[in-house]
Write a protein that binds this DNA or RNA. Structure first.
Length: 645
RNA sequence: GCUGAUUUAGCUCAGUCGGUAGAGCGUUUCCCUCGUAAAGAAAAGGUCGCCAGUUCGAUUCUGGCAAUCAGCACCA
């Protein structure tokens, strides 16, 4: 027997008898042997007692590697299970996982674990950790495990997913579980962990299945890392747009007047208006014709479009007008823009026809999904539809993508990835059934991305009901993935609404429709920006750009008003704080309100027709002439500067 | 929608083992007239989420509903 192990640096080591990953690590260096947590063997995560007996590529993982954290957390999850099972012998376990956010274990409901019981369980875990209890890695025949878990409602099903006749299982005392890539050989290393929350989660992630309880927590190798992570979790709250929205008086949602129906206060409305003007200008410059269409539409239009068949759960119930007419609050405005297209006979010479609208949509979101401006029941969509000939699809697609990238640049959106969203062919309830069209459009979309040489992930079951999409997924400041922009190819609706244009040949042809959104909805986009900027909006977006504060009310109010008026006249959003309060008090408020520029005006400034500038987040006092300040802020606004970030 | 927790003044939160409530911040008024992150005083402000039930009496106990939060499912 002889085989060789290839290490990450390319070097090879030959062996003539089997050895464990741990032995290999020791063989390389004693210190590495001590630090080894697990290994990647041909890309697969394996524990330190894994037997090497044939040619393989091996990378030893120590606690400096990200994957080591997953091993640690999986071990913590396993220990939690063992301890919880001891405390509640009748408890069953569902799925468990460990990743960059921590770990979780699903348990069944018959024996609810309350959040108040977590400290006791933590204590029991700590006891085991202190004792450094051994975790035994065993290969068990699948049939033995099936026998052991024969009364378990979940483990049997999970066992079916395990490949082969033997299963990698782990034992701590008489507790056994499986489904881990690799665990530590001993509980002693799980020093710094915390159980965090108890929440519901569906068994196997299906809402038709019973709901289990998910206990989640996190673990680190270093105490400082755990502390930093707990602090990070706390600080996330400070970025929450709901908190900032209230503190800065941007918007409110009040169940008394309707859950999920936000009210935009003047400051929030200002931010939104600036964005709306920006995006309309941008789109008009890119060849879009902006329109307004009604929020109500005859239900028949949504029957024709397929919304009524495939999207009804997300729609408000129709209004019965009593004379046979049924009106529907629109959930999307593709049918509205189709009506605009159909209003005239269209020639190939006009194509592409680009229709855009900041249109208000209503969708009946499930109560549990509502969240501030992030998920609402009334939203203004940055929507647009372009109607093109078949041979224009690629160019139009590239043009839209360029527009999106231009906008991202101005808003400094850099953390995003592309996702091609396809239908799930098995889900006939959700998607139009027309295999040929789906194949064609999905292939065309992928081809367009490949031609542009862009990287993407593919996701089945994420398409719109009428066609596949390119989704641009951004990361929010709170770490959630969300769809910011989308480009969707649609062969279905032109067919259903019998859209035509007259070709060069004088015959009628069918156009292709491209649905696209740049910044998604105004609601979600403002929520996103609020979190990214932590409420300190860049000057071009800030609801109040300049706060003017007189040193002495009697002596300097007139000059403060004069400066404010001059700024307002030039189109800047300036306010003068003429309340009877101390200077320090007003400065403080101007800072907590995150206003980009605070101007303090006293005798010196009045005499010299100057201002004293304190930019947000600093304690600078910069004296300059009013003219110079105006030049500075003008430059700041026009550059879409992010310096407040 | 589901599971759990929560809901008391504009905000953050105490409190009442059943006898209708408090603090800090904010607001208003008075006072102070001030050079870069909170001067001082007084006052106003609450159907104790909503609807039932039990009780002599419910903010407190019980039930239902709604909303909010965490997560799941869904999703822009």
């Amino acid at each position: 027997m002889s085989f060789s192990i290839t290490l990450p640096d390319g070097s090879k080591r030959d062996f003539d008898k089997a050895l464990t990953v741990g032995d290999l690590a020791h063989n390389i260096a004693t210190s590495l042997g001590k630090a080894a947590v697990a290994a990647k063997v041909d890309g697969q995560l394996e524990p330190v007692d894994y037997q090497l007996n044939k040619n393989a590529k091996v990378a030893i993982i120590t606690n400096k590697d990200d994957e080591a954290l997953n091993v640690l957390r999986a071990t913590a999850a396993f220990l939690f299970e063992a301890v919880a099972k001891k405390a509640y012998p009748e408890l069953h376990f569902g799925e468990h996982a460990a990743d960059k956010d921590g770990f979780y274990v699903d348990t069944d409901k018959t024996n609810q674990i309350k959040i108040s019981e977590l400290p006791q369980l933590e204590k029991a875990m700590k006891k085991s950790i202190k004792n450094g209890e051994k975790i035994e890695h065993v290969q068990v025949a699948k049939s033995d495990l099936e026998a052991e878990f024969k009364d378990d409602p979940y483990k049997g099903a999970l066992l079916k997913n395990e490949k082969g006749d033997t299963v990698d299982a782990y034992k701590l005392g008489d507790f056994t579980d499986f489904g881990f890539d690799a665990l530590l050989p001993n509980t002693g290393k799980i020093k710094y962990f915390k159980l965090l929350t108890v929440a519901g989660a569906y068994w196997m992630g299906k809402s038709s299945n019973p709901m289990l309880q998910r206990i989640s927590g996190t673990a680190f190798f270093k105490e400082s890392a755990l502390k930093a992570d707990l602090k990070r979790r706390d600080e996330i709250k400070e970025r929450d747009h709901r908190t900032i929205g209230r503190d800065l008086d941007l918007f409110f949602v009040d169940p008394k007047v309707g859950a999920g129906l936000p009210y935009w206060m003047p400051k929030g409305a200002t931010i939104r208006r600036v964005i709306e003007r920006y995006i309309i200008d941008k789109e008009v410059a890119d060849g879009y014709q902006h329109v307004y269409t009604p929020v109500l539409m005859n239900l028949n239009a949504y029957k024709t479009s397929g919304h009524w068949a495939h999207y009804r759960d997300d729609m408000f119930p129709p209004m019965d007008m009593g004379d046979g007419e049924m009106l529907e609050l629109r959930p999307m405005n593709c049918p509205s823009h189709i009506e605009i297209y159909k209003h005239h006979i269209r020639s190939y010479r006009e194509l592409p026809i680009r229709i855009a609208e900041l249109g208000m949509m209503h969708r009946y979101e499930k109560s549990g999904a509502l969240s501030g401006l992030q998920r609402v029941r009334e939203m203004t969509l940055n929507d647009g539809h372009t109607f093109v000939a078949l041979d224009q699809v690629q160019d139009e697609f590239a043009k839209i993508l360029k527009l999106i990238m231009d906008v991202y640049k101005d808003f400094d959106i850099t953390d995003y990835h592309f996702r091609l969203s396809y239908r799930d062919p098995k889900n006939t309830q959700k998607y139009f059934s027309n295999d040929e069209m789906w194949e064609k459009s999905q292939k065309m979309l992928k081809g367009a991305m490949d031609d542009l040489g862009l990287d993407y992930v593919e996701a089945e079951g994420e398409a719109a009901f009428y066609g596949p999409k390119l989704d641009i997924q951004t990361k929010t400041a709170l770490g959630n993935d969300e769809t910011m922009s989308t480009i969707q190819l649609d062969f279905m609706l032109p067919e259903r609404f019998n859209l035509t244009y007259v070709g060069k040949d004088g015959e009628e042809h069918r156009p292709v429709m491209i649905h696209r959104g740049i910044v998604g909805t105004m609601e979600r986009f403002v929520a996103y920006l609020t979190e990214i900027y932590k409420g300190a909006f860049p000057t071009w977006l800030a609801p109040i750009q300049v706060e003017v504060i007189p040193v002495n009310l009697d002596a300097h109010s007139d000059y403060a008003k004069k400066v404010r008026d001059e700024l307002n006249k030039r189109g800047f959003r300036a306010e003068a704080d003429l309340r009877n309060e101390k200077l320090g008090y007003k400065i403080r408020e101007s800072q907590t309100q995150k206003i980009p520029y605070t101007l303090v005006l006293g005798d010196k400034e009045m005499k010299a027709n100057s201002v004293n500038v304190r930019p947000y987040g600093t304690d600078d006092e910069i004296a300059k002439s009013l003219d110079d300040f105006i030049k500075e802020i003008d430059k700041d606004v026009n550059s879409y500067s992010r310096k407040n970030k």
